[in-house]
């Protein structure tokens, strides 16, 4: 018991130290992300209203204590819809970045380390893929395959791989001839271990900031697709699809469009604040 307590105390102290070292922007960024993740977690268990429940008596009502962000054209509670939309948006974006970053770093680090003809071939394909904007690539997949949450994750996830390959490979090329890598080779460290224990920790900072940037791009791309009604399909709603529904009521019920829009801005801002601190 004592051990656990001491562990927690030292960890908390370490966290405090770590937090003190961050810049102000970074601290704000972390706070925003923490709050958003908290909201997403809560939204799994509790929402003030059922986001799909319609209420004919309360159509397009302005913000009030009972409906924090007002109601939409079907009388649904916008706050609850934003919460559940945020949840979908975050999950989809995380899925996209996870696919992109994982495959991107595996392919990028191996091809960068090996080099030669293999590298040449991989990069050719990679370049051809980056020639497509990720949005277009996802459009191709979806136009053939149909829309849907998981299809969006896979389509955009694949579209995000090339940029991670490029970043990780670039770092790999820079680092693989470092003296400390030669030194590790002289120690008799096997190639696999050199890549993942010696070089990869040094790529990590770059990769982390690429992940933060990638997360933002994923949110933007997903919301773009959903806005065009070819991403998430109703009744599920991400922040993007809510915006497209709300645009028609801009004149009478601006809160309907502004609420999801601003939540999205804050989400992206949180990540870009954090990633900016990382790059410095």
């Amino acid at each position: 018991m004592k051990k656990i307590k001491r562990f927690i105390v030292t960890r908390a102290k370490g966290f405090k130290e770590w937090f003190k070292q961050r810049t102000v922007t970074e601290r704000i960024g972390f706070c925003i992300l923490f709050l958003i993740m908290l909201m997403v977690l809560i939204s799994f268990f509790y929402l003030p209203y059922d986001p799909t429940k319609m209420d004919g008596t309360a159509k397009l009502k302005g913000p009030s204590p009972s409906h924090l962000f007002g109601t939409d054209n079907f009388g649904r509670d916008v706050f609850s819809r934003v919460m559940s939309g945020l949840q979908d948006t975050v999950i989809i974006a995380l899925g996209i970045v996870a696919i992109g970053a994982f495959f991107g770093s595996v392919i990028g680090s191996v091809t960068g380390y090996i080099g030669g003809l293999f590298d040449e071939a991989v990069m050719r394909i990679n370049d051809a893929m980056t020639a497509f904007p990720s949005m277009l690539l996802a459009l191709v997949v979806i136009s053939v395959w149909g829309a849907g949450k998981y299809k969006v994750i896979i389509a955009l996830g694949i579209a995000f791989i090339p940029s991670f390959v490029r970043i990780v490979r670039g770092e790999m090329l820079k680092l693989k001839d470092a003296d400390y890598v030669d030194s590790a080779r002289l120690m008799g460290v096997p190639t696999f271990r050199i890549i993942y224990r010696h070089i990869f920790p040094n790529i990590m900072p770059t990769l982390l900031s690429a992940i933060a940037v990638g997360f933002n791009n994923a949110v933007l791309a997903e919301s773009g697709l959903s806005y065009l009604n070819i991403g998430v399909t109703p009744p599920e709603a991400s922040l993007g699809s809510m915006l497209s529904d709300a645009q028609g009521y801009l004149l009478n019920a601006p809160w309907y469009a502004l609420a999801p829009g601003f939540v999205m801005i804050i989400l992206i801002l949180g990540f870009s604040f954090v990633s900016e601190g990382r790059t410095k």
């Binding site: 933002n216 919301s223 992206i268």
Partner: peptide, 12 residues
């Protein structure tokens, strides 16, 4: 902040 706004929300 501008970068954090999706282009279509900028439009809206």
């Amino acid at each position: 902040i501008i970068m954090a706004i999706t282009s279509f929300f900028t439009g809206i």
